[in-house]
């Protein structure tokens, strides 16, 4: 238990948490669509990061480690039966804390609502590919699946998102294609 009392590691971890917790929470929010659950997922990711803090020698890999922990925690957590049952309840999206533009607010709420209707693994693929900017190989490694699965999940996720957004937010087909398809 001596490792619990090291102040140097705590200071480094606190500095990293302060700098990155907002990004991690937002990614978690996109995954689950709920700020409370986003905090839970972020907490899980940061606890795992703290547990492996002394084993990660490359500080440049902290972001990738935290992101992987976050997405895997989301996939594992939403795969549980009790969590799936809880998600069946309809809940309104979070209201903004401050003043916001009306159109942007409406669009944001619509996108969050549409993401909620996308199946969890497809949603995770969409967030990895189009929010985190990961390529197919990185997404496949994070989700522990094949690259072909990532591609198919991407296509299905985009179709589900397009269907959920409706005609008002129909994205451009060429613009919504993944990078590997355009290239």
């Amino acid at each position: 238990m001596r490792a619990l009392e090291d102040s140097e590691g705590l200071e480094e971890f606190t500095a990293y948490f302060t700098a990155r917790q907002e990004v991690v929470r937002r990614t978690a929010y996109l995954l689950c669509g709920d700020w409370h659950r986003a905090d839970d997922l972020a907490q899980t990711a940061f606890v795992r990061l703290a547990g492996a803090w002394h084993t990660i020698r490359d500080r440049g890999a902290l972001d990738a480690f935290t992101r992987t922990c976050l997405i895997r925690a989301y996939v594992a957590d939403t795969g549980r039966a009790w969590r799936r049952r809880e998600l069946t309840a309809e809940s309104p999206p979070e209201r903004p804390a401050g003043p916001d533009d009306g159109d942007l607010l409406a669009t944001r709420l619509a996108v969050v609502e549409a993401l909620r209707t996308v199946p969890r693994r497809q949603r995770a693929v969409l967030v990895c590919r189009f929010y985190e900017g990961m390529d197919v190989a990185e997404t496949a490694e994070v989700l522990r699946c094949s690259q072909g699965t990532v591609k198919s999940q991407t296509a299905k996720g985009l179709a589900a998102l397009r269907a959920a957004l409706g005609a008002g937010y129909q994205p451009d087909s060429t613009a919504t294609r993944p990078v590997w398809e355009v290239a």
Partner: peptide
Amino acid sequence: DVRELLRLAGSAPA
């Protein structure tokens, strides 16, 4: 674009 949509959704005040 999907990226813009997700970025917009992720920019909600936390």
